[in-house]
Design a protein around this nucleic acid. Structure first.
Length: 316
DNA sequence: ATGGTTTTTACTGCGTC
DNA sequence: GACGCGGTAAAAACCAT
């Protein structure tokens, strides 16, 4: 999403839209369907430039109709190297009416398929992308993160490729970093350790590449909030809802005091869960929380003491 | 490279079941 | 004696400069 200034030509077909321009605070945002842009008439700020309507090209007037009508063509996706746009030649040797074809046609179709595959992945960049996206796909399923993360990761990887950031770095490394970034961006954080576990490169490289990519692509992410790990860890540990609620409360109250800054989010979350266990008189061994959070008992100890001190509560 | 901070590793003593 | 917990010191990792 680039915010760029364009020349302020007014267009006949443009129509005024509701909403304030974030830049000059005037309600002069117009929608220009020809250019597919939303532009502020006052200062020329382009708010969005996404000319593609991803929705269906028909309108349904009742539920039944909605089910019956089908979309023409597949929706666009970022996670295929050609965005899923290319027409592919079916592998079946049947014509449009389902009849089989002559052997002459068979051979012709076979040659066409071969060439399609060659052309589709013709240059190094395309092949690079194809491999990277398949890797992202693999890691996404291994991590069990939802689909939007995959799309985001793909977009990040594309941008890295466009800006020539891959040179001198492994495709694997950049792909993994893109995924790690995407997880955080979509608020479904996975720790570096967890991402490393499904990747083919070591943690150091992923971390290094991540910082480089984030810097070059101007992706500024807030440090992960420890509370985002709580639900996942809690369900893995099989603790009561009370503990989970308490853990979130502890995190909220302590992060307000800035107690978490500079500390590892996973360790902090683990400690909060342990502390919550103490306060709720539900015994969760330090060992267990440390293991699920992929940290150590020492870290859990150090963090939970600080947390309890900070909120001025001691276990009964 | 360097120094400051945090995490990890490894070892230890204590109380309880 | 195994286990959970607490503390500590030293090593390793991390980060900003």
């Amino acid at each position: 999403m680039t915010r760029s200034i364009i020349d302020q030509t007014t267009n006949e077909s443009a129509e005024t839209e509701a909403g304030l321009c974030p830049d000059c605070d005037t309600a002069t945002i117009i929608h220009d369907p020809d250019r597919g842009e939303r532009v502020c008439e006052e200062c020329g700020l382009v708010l969005t430039e996404d000319p593609i309507d991803y929705g269906p090209e028909w309108r349904a007037f009742n539920a039944q109709e909605h089910d019956q009508l089908s979309r023409v063509g597949a929706p666009l996706t970022q996670s295929m190297h050609d965005r899923g746009l290319t027409t592919t030649i079916d592998w079946r040797n049947k014509d449009a009416n389902g009849r089989s074809m002559s052997s002459e046609k068979h051979g012709q179709l076979h040659r066409l398929r071969v060439w399609q595959e060659r052309i589709r992945t013709k240059n190094a960049g395309e092949r690079n992308l194809k491999y990277a996206l398949s890797e992202i796909d693999r890691m996404v399923s291994a991590l069990g993160v939802p689909k939007p993360v995959k799309e985001t990761a793909s977009v990040i990887y594309r941008r890295a490729l466009e800006q020539d950031l891959i040179r001198g770095r492994s495709i694997e490394g950049v792909a993994t970093s893109s995924l790690y970034t995407a997880c955080r961006k979509e608020d479904i954080p996975r720790s570096l350790e967890e991402v490393t576990a499904v990747s083919r490169v070591d943690q150091r490289e992923i971390g290094r590449t991540y910082r480089y990519i984030a810097d070059e692509l101007d992706i500024n992410l807030e440090p992960t909030n420890p509370r985002q790990f709580v639900p996942r860890f809690c369900s893995e540990l099989d603790v009561s809802k009370d503990v989970e609620t308490k853990a979130v409360e502890i995190i909220d109250r302590t992060t307000d005091q800035g107690l978490h800054s500079g500390k590892s989010p996973t360790g902090f979350a683990a400690a909060a869960i342990y502390a919550a266990g103490l306060l709720c008189e539900e015994t969760i061994p330090q060992r267990a929380v440390a293991d699920t959070a992929q940290t150590t008992v020492v870290t859990v100890r150090n963090r939970y003491r600080e947390q309890l001190d900070a909120i001025d509560q001691q276990p009964a």
